[in-house]
């Protein structure tokens, strides 16, 4: 058995004759059992990456393995909720769940689906799909995904249509599912703050490129916000620097996390703070020239190197 949920190497996707790759040279490894935030601006390639992982779209470059094999072989163990949530408008909620049961023989768990559909703040079984709001349809789509009892749950902008209360409830339900069954969850969003508390893994996409990939705590520990009077933040790699009063504040990748003090993070008149995940993401997005980071020490040094020289 593998402990990897998704492993991608040099993954790319190009649609038709469009000049730009929608996804280019993406390499990362997502371990099983993680709650992963797939973050990036609109058009960064998040939906494309999710569709490839779900086995619905073929990459035009590179390789991807899902749950130890090609995505198509893992289809029965994956649940994928697309952004537009295709549901039959004329069916009732209850009939939609029955359909889910029939389409997933041997795997379906009615109680899991019902907890989401009819639980706290939930829906009427007899309500027709067409009468539901966007947020309520999200609930039905998530109920179908939960009923399938997947090992990997791929959610494309799952929270976009939800009001704050439903968002909190459904995120809680997702986390409960994960803790009980060890489900790996990947959810995309362009709002980092929305995912900050629930995720422990981050994939940051920008312009089809993977800017950051890794365990959130390790990524945070590898960065620092330094404020000083000078503009020199050596030996650290400056991701982004801004004037702050008479001095400068810089988001840096710390030179050597194992020897922080020796590396001189606290140099002359420097104040060091830990960035939040949101600050980290925004800093990297603002700085197109940030060296690509990969805290996960697997074998894609070549890839990291390429992006660094390209920057």
């Amino acid at each position: 058995m593998t402990d990897t949920a998704i492993q991608a190497a040099g993954l790319g996707r190009r649609y038709g004759r469009r000049k730009r790759d929608v996804l280019a040279d993406c390499s990362f490894r997502l371990p099983k059992g993680r709650i992963c935030a797939l973050v990036g601006p609109n058009g960064a390639g998040k939906s494309t990456l999710l569709a490839i992982a779900a086995g619905l779209l073929k990459p035009t470059a590179g390789t991807v393995e899902v749950l130890g094999g090609p995505p198509t072989a893992a289809r029965s163990r994956i649940a994928y909720v697309a952004q537009h949530k295709p549901l039959h408008p004329q069916l009732t909620v209850a009939a939609t769940l029955r359909l889910g049961a029939e389409l997933n023989p041997g795997r379906w768990e009615q109680s899991a689906a019902e907890r989401i559909a009819y639980g706290t703040g939930g829906l009427e079984p007899k309500a027709k799909i067409r009468s539901l709001s966007g947020g309520q349809r999200t609930r039905v789509a998530l109920a179908l995904a939960f009923g399938k009892r997947p090992e990997l749950l791929l959610l494309d902008e799952p929270m976009a249509d939800l009001d704050p209360l439903a968002r909190h409830e459904l995120t809680g339900a997702l986390m409960a599912e994960a803790v009980e069954h060890g489900t790996t969850i990947v959810m995309s969003s362009h709002v980092v703050a929305e995912l900050e508390g629930s995720c422990d893994y981050l994939l940051l996409l920008q312009g089809g490129r993977m800017r950051l990939a890794g365990d959130t705590e390790e990524l945070l520990a590898a960065h620092a916000l330094l404020t000083g009077t000078g503009t020199d933040f050596a030996p650290h790699t400056v991701i982004e620097r801004r004037a702050s009063g008479r001095g400068h504040t810089a988001l840096v990748r710390v030179a050597d996390t194992t020897e922080e003090s020796a590396a001189g993070t606290t140099g002359p008149a420097r104040h060091r703070e830990q960035p939040t995940l949101e600050e980290l993401v925004l800093g990297h997005l603002r700085s197109h020239q940030a060296p690509a980071g990969d805290i996960d020490h697997t074998d894609h040094n070549d890839h990291t190197h390429q992006q660094e020289t390209a920057a």
Binding site: R34, I35, G172, M175, V179, E180, G197, S198, D200
Partner: peptide, 12 residues
């Protein structure tokens, strides 16, 4: 399970 369901934070 109870904690994550109520707070929506990460299980780990």
């Amino acid at each position: 399970r109870e904690v994550v369901e109520a707070t929506a934070i990460n299980p780990n």
